[in-house]
Design a protein around this nucleic acid. Structure first.
Lengths: 128, 128
DNA sequence: CACGTTCTACGACACATGTCGTAGGCTAAA
DNA sequence: TTTAGCCTACGACATGTGTCGTAGAACGTG
């Protein structure tokens, strides 16, 4: 059930599939920036491994090429990443927030948006 | 310079050193919860590897046992974790925040504290 | 149909991580 | 001083990840 653990490269491949929809290996390969693009067979190997993890599946065949599509959502995969990070932090969000702020990546708008989202969520769940 | 990449188990060992200060392998080993505690030599191997990564160093010897201490700060290590996560998210904090909220781990207090921290930081930096 | 191009399906290898066993040195207590 | 017990140093192995090469099948064009 739970979305499988995905490595950095695997995520980049999933990203291509999430962005472009069903793709051939060739298309996924070409979605990588020319600079530092891995070999075609490297991408192929990773797609096969993603298939073994059931993160992608073959949908059809065009000519002699297989077409793959994501079998897990971007949301599920991202949630997994966050859960793992939180695991490393002992489940405490406070240090995570602190470092996000310190890294200068978090703006006041982000915070505002987060607060709004949180309020909406609690408004929705509290009444239960 | 940059703090090295640390795995989950390595982080647990660093945690012991950050919490208790300089420690012997034995002490680090015993800092693990009895349930699921790795073998003594497993901890030893990881400490040696952390030493190779210059994340810990030997400070002295008590009797025939080496005493180790952290050579990088918890903050630096945690910042590294966040940076890597952000890297996986293409540097965008928005989805990170969204998932933190959705996971239900983020409270309104966390947000408030974050906002406060952020204001203090910008008050300090803007005037430059 | 023949041939160059493209894909697939594997196999391989290096490095990182987690896991441990063992050999032998050192310590401390009897 | 003998010896049980702890510690070190090292080797080993499995799994996961990133990397790629090659052999041969399949396709499409002239």
């Amino acid at each position: 059930m739970a979305s499988p653990r995905l490595s950095k490269l695997e995520l980049q491949i999933m990203e291509a599939l999430w962005n472009a929809g069903a793709c051939s290996i060739r298309e996924i390969h070409e979605a990588f920036p020319k600079r530092g693009r891995p070999a075609y067979t490297t991408v192929q190997t990773m797609v096969y491994r993603l298939e073994a993890k059931q993160a992608v599946r073959r949908t059809k065949k065009i000519s002699n090429a297989h077409i793959f599509e994501a079998a897990i959502t971007r949301d599920a995969a991202q949630r997994r990443l966050i859960d793992e990070l939180l695991g490393l932090f002992g489940g405490r969000t406070q240090p995570v927030m602190a470092h996000l702020i310190e890294s200068g990546k978090l703006t006041l708008e982000d915070i505002k948006a987060a607060e709004k989202a949180l309020r909406q969520l609690s408004d929705k769940e509290r009444p239960q």
